[in-house]
Amino acid sequence: MKELSRNIIGTTTGKETFEYAWRDIALYAAGVGAKDNETQYQYEVGLKALPTYGVVPYWGTFGITPHRDLPRNVTFSLNLDQEGSFHMAHKLILHQPIAPMGARLTIEDIITEVYDRNGKGAVVRSELTAYDESGAKVFTNVGDTIFGAYSVPSAPPYPKSTVVFPEREPDFTEKDFVAPNQHLLYRLSGDTNRLHVDLEEARQRGFDRPIMQGLCSFGFACRLAVRDLVPGQPERIKSIEAQMRNPLFPGTEIELSLWKAGDGRAYFRLMDLQNSRPVLEKGEIDWE
């Protein structure tokens, strides 16, 4: 395996601009499965933003200056070997509610840590934070990407999740259906990675057809969780995180299971019901 230096910590994209309008908020909601009875996420009168709209610039293209042709987080500036690489975990922290009618934000993506997975790859953690025009933080994305071609002998081990599911039935379950064209709709929010649309690209990556975007599944989980935990009040969500376990294909039924874990906290798992396997695992969501 190749060795990766921890000297990459501190690498940054520099300051960039991310702009969006109410239409982008509504389009994102449709991209993560909002139904015709969830007009609060799609109608500009009384519009509310789903908290996970905050993940959009992490793998974004549209609305970002300087322009990106394809989604690129800070790790792409390192020209690392992409063999065996994938986005393995994500956390979104909401410092304030996302303005539903639009905003002009300053964003910066910085590598904050590098972990070793006992010879099974290097995990690079980056944090993309968005600031409003007053300089206040709006949201922070903490994304972990594994690079299977590397090891980092001097790095700390990748931290284990602290989520432990209670030994009882979930407090809430929500079923939903990921439409056959869901990946095409979600990409209109900016994740234009060709893996999610191009058949030949998908086959080169070992899939028989394009797969769903991992952060689209993340958005589905958040939308469904809001129904049960803070109905009609998505602005109360303070953070959401999960591990990405298995690829999900368009045209699949899914189920979210939620376990309350104290005041203002719940754990969750998102299952692919067609293949009986987890899509998102060790999930945690916090609200006020």
Rank of each mutant, 00 (worst) to 15 (best):
N193V: 11
K160V: 13
Q182K: 03
V142K: 02
I211D: 00
D263W: 02
G262Y: 11
D176R: 12
E200M: 12
G232Y: 10
E167A: 11
D208F: 10
V230M: 01
S257Y: 04
Y150T: 10
N181F: 15
F165D: 04
G148W: 14
P157A: 09
G251A: 03
G251L: 10
R203L: 06
T192G: 01
G148Y: 15
L256D: 02
D144G: 09
F165V: 15
E201I: 12
V178S: 08
W259Q: 01
C222K: 02
R227N: 09
G143Y: 14
L224A: 13
D191P: 08
G251R: 09
V197R: 05
L224P: 00
Q213W: 03
A202V: 05
N141T: 09
P234C: 07
V197N: 00
S189V: 14
E253H: 10
L229D: 02
I254G: 00
M212I: 08
F249T: 01
P234Y: 08
Q213P: 01
G148S: 13
E201W: 09
L258Q: 05
L224T: 04
R236W: 03
R265P: 00
A149Q: 11
R203M: 10
G214V: 06
M244P: 00
F207R: 08
T162M: 15
I146S: 07
V226N: 04
R209G: 00
R227M: 07
P250T: 06
L215P: 04
G206T: 06
I254P: 00
F165P: 04
G148C: 14
E201P: 00
I240R: 08
A155M: 10
F177A: 07
K260C: 00
V178K: 10
G190D: 04
R194M: 14
P170R: 13
L248Q: 01
W259N: 00
R168I: 05
T145V: 15
G264L: 12
I237L: 07
F207I: 13
G219I: 11
D263F: 07
P231I: 12
L195H: 05
H183M: 05
Q243N: 03
D263Q: 09
A221E: 10
I237C: 01
R209T: 03
D228E: 12
P166F: 06
P156L: 06
D171E: 12
R205P: 00
H196N: 08
K260P: 00
N193S: 13
V164P: 02
K238F: 05
V178W: 12
D228F: 09
R203W: 09
F147T: 03
P234W: 11
S189G: 11
V178I: 15
L256Y: 08
H183F: 07
E255S: 04
A261F: 05
L188P: 05
G206K: 06
L185E: 03
P166L: 01
D171Q: 12
Y150Q: 07
G262W: 12
Y150N: 06
A225D: 03
F207K: 11
Y158F: 15
E174S: 14
L224M: 15
L258Y: 11
P156V: 03
E169K: 13
R194P: 04
L256Q: 08
R236H: 04
G190E: 08
S257V: 01
